[in-house]
C-alpha cells in the first residue's frame, strides 16, 4: 500500500455559493513511502490546497485521500492522519509557540501524553537531526530564519511522522537559510521520511527525484525533473521557467555546441563544456556550428 493515495480529488471553496471557486479539479496521485517529491505550479494552481488535504486540514469536496490506508474524511482518523503527516509553512514566526527552543519542540509530544523520558529523548533526537541541538536552550525569536524553520521541522519530527509536507517553507529565507532547510530535508529523506516540498524555486525542484507540476487544479506533468525541464514551452504556458543552468545548456545546444541533453546541475554543465574546450585544443579556430 502506498503512503498517500489520492483518487479523483476535487476541492471547491465556498461550494454552493456565488463565490464558489474550484481549487482542485480531479487529482489522482500516488506517493510511495520514502519518496522525495517537489510540487510546483503557478500562483493559484492548487498547490497549497492539495497540501492541506494531506493531513486533513481540508477535506475533499469529491474524491478521496488515503494516508497509510486511512480515509481523511473519516473523523475518527483525523488525529492518526495528522500524526503521520506533518506540515511546515512559509512563515517561521507563525509556527513557534514556546519561549525556549526545546520547549517548542516538546509541545507536540507533550500533547500526545507521552512519558517525560520519552519526550526528552524525542526532543533531543529531533534537534540533533536538524542540527539545532546546541541551541536547545535558546529563545526562538533570536534565531535566524533558517534556524527557526529547522526548529519548526524538529517540532514536527518529534511527532515521528512518516511524511513531511513543506508548503513554501524556504520562500522567506535568505540564501543560507534556504540551503540549511534543503540539506535538512534531504537528510531526513535519506533516513526514510517521505518528503513533499512545495516550492516556486525551480532550482530546488531540480534537486528532487520526482517533480509534479500543477495547473488549474490538475496534474499537468509528473516525472523526473530532467524530463519536466525538457518541456520548456509547456512549462512556460504553466507560468513556470527553466532554472538558469538547464536554460543555458539548451541555449548552447541550439547554438550548435554539442552539450549533452538532460543537464540540470552546474557541475555537470561545467565538465561538459570543459571537455569540449579541451577537445578543441590544437584544432585551431572552429566555427560556431550554428544551424
Amino acid at each position: 500500500m502506498a503512503l498517500i493515495e489520492i483518487q479523483n480529488l476535487h476541492h471547491t471553496y465556498h461550494a454552493g455559493t456565488p463565490e464558489a471557486v474550484v481549487a482542485l479539479d480531479g487529482i489522482s496521485l500516488t506517493i510511495e513511502r520514502g519518496e522525495f517529491v517537489a510540487i510546483v505550479g503557478g500562483n493559484g494552481s492548487g498547490k497549497s490546497t492539495l497540501a492541506k488535504h494531506l493531513n486533513a486540514l481540508l477535506l475533499p469536496t469529491e474524491g478521496e485521500v488515503r494516508v497509510d490506508g486511512l480515509d481523511t474524511r473519516e473523523p475518527a482518523s483525523t488525529w492518526e492522519v495528522r500524526q503521520r503527516v506533518g506540515m511546515v509553512f512559509q512563515n517561521p514566526d507563525n509556527q513557534l509557540v514556546a519561549t525556549v527552543v526545546e520547549e517548542d519542540v516538546a509541545f507536540g509530544p507533550e500533547n500526545l501524553g507521552l512519558p517525560s523520558r520519552e519526550i526528552v529523548e524525542r526532543v533531543e533526537e529531533s534537534l540533533r537531526v536538524v542540527g539545532m541541538l546546541d541551541y536547545r536552550r535558546h529563545q526562538p525569536h533570536l534565531l535566524s530564519g533558517g534556524q527557526k524553520q529547522r526548529v519548526a521541522i524538529a517540532g514536527i519530527l518529534a511527532m515521528r511522522p512518516q511524511c513531511l509536507v513543506l508548503d513554501e517553507a524556504t520562500t522567506m529565507l535568505d540564501p543560507l537559510g534556504q540551503r540549511e532547510v534543503m540539506e535538512t530535508i534531504h537528510t531526513l529523506n535519506r533516513e526514510g521520511v517521505t518528503v513533499i516540498h512545495i516550492t516556486h524555486a525551480m532550482e530546488e525542484a531540480a534537486q528532487c527525484p520526482r517533480m509534479i507540476v500543477l495547473s488549474s487544479g490538475r496534474v499537468a506533468m509528473d516525472g523526473l525533473p530532467v524530463d519536466v525541464f525538457s518541456r520548456a514551452d509547456d512549462l512556460h504556458r504553466l507560468r513556470l521557467v527553466l532554472p538558469p543552468i538547464p536554460a543555458l545548456a539548451s541555449q548552447l545546444r541550439r547554438d550548435g555546441l554539442p552539450v549533452p541533453e538532460r543537464i540540470l546541475d552546474a557541475d555537470d554543465l561545467a565538465s561538459a563544456i570543459a571537455s569540449l574546450a579541451t577537445e578543441r585544443v590544437g584544432h585551431g579556430r572552429v566555427g560556431n556550428g550554428a544551424d
Binding site: L248, D255, R280
Partner: peptide, 16 residues
C-alpha cells in the same frame, strides 16, 4: 546574464 555566459563560453571553446 545568460547572454553573456553564452558569448563567454563560445569564445573559450573557440580559443582554448
Amino acid at each position: 546574464s545568460l547572454e553573456e555566459a553564452r558569448a563567454a563560453i563560445w569564445e573559450a571553446v573557440r580559443w582554448n
